[in-house]
């Protein structure tokens, strides 16, 4: 089963059922996502210990090809987000 935003809200609501409304749980998830996104949009890396690191990397312009037509084209310089999982997350995924 794929985990979605609604599932995250549900998880929080389950734990905080006596001190938070569903609307507050939703608001908290939205707020957290906005902080994470704003951080990356600013070009700042985000290090979440025990989970992983989101990096913002500057890529230089390069010559590429349209794989469908084979036509050469110039890919502009870009800024991209990459994710490097922490050792702890890797181990958990591998059942260690």
């Amino acid at each position: 089963m794929t985990l979605t935003k609604a599932d995250l809200v549900q998880h929080i609501y389950k734990i905080h059922d006596n001190d938070m409304t569903k609307a507050q749980a939703t608001e908290a998830v939205e707020a957290l996502l906005k902080i994470v996104k704003d951080c990356l949009i600013e070009g700042e890396d985000l290090l979440i210990s025990g989970f992983g690191k989101f990096n913002v990397k500057n890529k230089k312009a390069r010559r590429g090809r349209n794989p469908q037509t084979g036509q050469e084209l110039i890919l502009d310089a870009r800024r991209v987000v990459t994710f490097k999982p922490s050792g702890i997350l890797r181990d958990k995924i591998n059942g260690k």
Binding site: M1, T2, L3, T4, K5, D7, L8, H11, I12, I15, H16, A28, V29, L32, L33, V36, K37, I48, G50, F51, L89, K92, I93, G95
Partner: peptide, 25 residues
Amino acid sequence: SITNTILEAMTNTLASGDSIEIRGF
């Protein structure tokens, strides 16, 4: 507590081989 709940849910999902899909993220 909220942050850790979210990270735990994400970690457990990946640990069971499932995927995560968060719109806009």
